[in-house]
Design a binder for these strands. Structure first.
Length: 115
DNA sequence: GCGCTGACGCGAT
DNA sequence: CATCGCGCCAGCG
């Protein structure tokens, strides 16, 4: 019904804050946990829009394990540094993360959101 | 109101 | 593995 979900940003923030120290999540995974499978881009936008400094946004990476920011950019370096501080190991500019064990294609296509 | 853009994802090449 | 291309969706000219 109401597709506006004014608390979307808040939800994303909550999910991100819940990421344990030294661990990471992909944008897509965050979107899923926030109740909107497939909305990875909106997660990115939410993070970019958020002015919350305490938000561990750096624990959110792309599905391929690379930071979503422009390589060598200011924020990019910050992200790598903070991750390193938490013991997250990066290899060739990307974090080793296990790719999601492809669930049923059906579910992927229908992607019902659970509010 | 329309079209471009982007802190994405994934199969195909 | 590294790249490319296309699909998605909401925010913003």
């Amino acid at each position: 019904m109401d597709a506006k979900l004014p608390d979307w940003d808040a939800r994303v923030a909550a999910v991100v804050r819940a990421i344990p120290r030294g661990s990471v999540l992909s944008y897509g995974e965050v979107a899923r946990r926030a109740g909107r499978p497939g909305h990875a881009r909106q997660v990115a936008r939410a993070l970019a829009a958020s002015a919350d400094r305490d938000l561990p946004w750096y624990r959110v990476l792309r599905a391929d394990g690379r930071p979503g920011l422009a390589p060598a950019s200011d924020a990019w370096r910050t992200q790598c540094r903070r991750l390193a501080e938490e013991g997250v190991v990066m290899r060739a500019g990307r974090v080793r993360m296990q790719r999601r064990p492809a669930q049923d294609l059906d579910e992927l296509l229908w992607a019902p959101d659970r509010t």
